[in-house]
Amino acid sequence: MSAITETRRDSLLEAMVRVVGRKGYQATSVADVIEEAGTSRTTFYKHFDDKHDCFLSAYDMLVERVFDTIVAECDGEQPWLSRVRKGLATLIGIFAREPELARTAVVEVAVAGAEARQRHWDAVARFTEFLEDGREELDPGGELPKHISVMATGAVSGLIFDELVAGRTANLPSLMPDLLFAMLVPFIGPAAATEEMRRVVQAT
């Protein structure tokens, strides 16, 4: 693929993320995406079979971008607690800055069919793995339940989903203390998680 072709493909993917976040997946047409990207119909169909095909690629790109940013921000942070705090803050920062991306990533992906949902689950599973390091640090005896990280990501994504569906994306950063509590509490319990929450409130 030549550099120009690749750039055009990327702008179509970026356009798909924005338009779907704005209009919803069902209401989005290929024409909308072309217009947003400023490319031709021919260019679109050179790269993608249809809207769904383009959406799946756009979703993959979105997930990579979010993860790259998170990893760049908090890779190597020690201990586990500060890594989680920083990772979560980075994610919430991205969502608050790019509300259209947030809606596409969390809410609209469910509308785009089974394959898209699978990609969403895979992305959540990567967050889950990220949390699993806490098990080694906090639970050398291996007493925590097997699915503890799924509980933590479930609690966090439930809260985020509610804010996005209610159209309160800008409000997400103020929810940071609660999100951190939700993420940590299965691992360290309410007293310690509340303490971590207070530290975030003081820092902001």
Partner: peptide, 19 residues
């Protein structure tokens, strides 16, 4: 505890179950 605690629990439960 945070006022949202019960909503977190609902999220954790639905996460496990939906999986």
């Amino acid at each position: 505890l945070p006022a949202n605690t019960s909503r977190m629990v609902v999220g954790a439960v639905t996460g496990l179950v939906s999986d």
